[in-house]
Design a protein around this nucleic acid. Sequence first.
DNA 1: TCAATACTTCTCAGATTGAGTAAGACTCGA
DNA 2: TCGAGTCTTACTCAATCTGAGAAGTATTGA
Lengths: 250, 250
Amino acid sequence: MDEASFLAGYNPRDYPAVAVTVDVVALTIRDGKLCVLLVERGQSPFAGHRALPGGFVRDEALDEAALRELAEETGLTPGDGNQLDRVHLEQLKTYGDPDRDPRMRVVSVAYLAFAPHLPEPTAGSDAAGAYWVPVDEAKDLAFDHDQVLAEGLERARDKLEYTPLATAFVGTEFTISELRQVYTTVWGEELHAGNFHRKVLSVPGFVESTGETSARGGERGGPKARLYRAGDARLLHPALLRPTREDRVR
Amino acid sequence: MDEASFLAGYNPRDYPAVAVTVDVVALTIRDGKLCVLLVERGQSPFAGHRALPGGFVRDEALDEAALRELAEETGLTPGDGNQLDRVHLEQLKTYGDPDRDPRMRVVSVAYLAFAPHLPEPTAGSDAAGAYWVPVDEAKDLAFDHDQVLAEGLERARDKLEYTPLATAFVGTEFTISELRQVYTTVWGEELHAGNFHRKVLSVPGFVESTGETSARGGERGGPKARLYRAGDARLLHPALLRPTREDRVR
DNA sequence: TCAATACTTCTCAGATTGAGTAAGACTCGA
DNA sequence: TCGAGTCTTACTCAATCTGAGAAGTATTGA
């Protein structure tokens, strides 16, 4: 289509019908593992495969559609004072290869969601077919969802470096250790506890002290730890860089 | 829509028709200024306003649609050995507010393009209505394109820090000074020439020497400079951080 | 009570950064 | 042709940041 016909106005009936959906890569940490929310597909295509939760966009903004899908699959109601209100949602990427869905042209806007510990979706609800799966067991997903998940994980790992995203995985009050465990879980690498501590406290606006102390020490011993909450920084400066970056440079 | 009806199959006729377009934020440096490619709108809505180049997605991948739109508006043919082959294209974000186009629901996938010096689109071609505009003069654009441009610029400024993106704005062979001018132009900040030099050469894979020297010195004096080409790094480590980040942290 | 754990702080050497300086190559205009 | 000004490149140095190790102490489970 040239510029003239573009300006002449839209006539979508001249083009094949396109469906627009949202898919959500919802990540949380359960039992020390990074997990993603998946749904079981009952019907063809990809019957028996698992897929990212998602669905058609209605008369709503794309962000709203993503939050709605997440709410439906987790069984939680947004704005209800539950953990869903603390979920961090951001757009990941849009996937629109002509043959990514065998039935028709589907353009899917993928979202990335970071959540603190959410309850297991309850059976009997709309969310009956959804459950949390450790990311390293989430393979063979329907459509191009393997790729979507992979790109979502890469984005999450990167954002941990230069944004306070890690605080979205813990409760409103947390210890430096809990925060460090988010990093080690998502990155799959151990971090030097002392240096991490120094670094987190030295980045302006990353965390602020509550003045309180945790109720008890670690599971296997150790002293009580001071509690912090997320600060007002939107970017970490200086950033918390991953130790072994050289591998990922080229 | 609940999970059951989602799995039951798509029936897009149950939903309002949605059009999918691509819009391109094409950036280049001309006369020491960061410029964006805009087209003039002749028709309502937003007649007389300028807009980002874009159009409907056909039976093609989204990336292909973006490259095609860019080719049509610049008057260049992809794969033709011209500068278009060196353009770096990446997806920016998808915009889909229900009322962003007054005529119907339009979901637009925005792309960011970084180009070395491209020719001015020639009059008489399809690209007659397109021209390069310094980004600080690109205001009052049609639809939500002010916002799209703003987010594209922010992305470009960020990516200069941790990717070798700057090399996409210069020729295949360039001097360290030319590279530094890309940074100062995009960031709008002066950089210490000596430190920049040291830093660029110390980042593995950022640039590699050609062994050659520029044909002449700077416009107003100075010695000839060594020539480099882009290296094989995809990420800069350590990154080239902007000097005044504190302002942007919260 | 003991051994193990782990929060927090400290130390120290090495690397990196920002700011300044300097030698020499080059351009332009007088 | 010469001199002033410009620019590339390299070097210096103090301040800061980093990674690695270790110390001191509080707390846990056995």
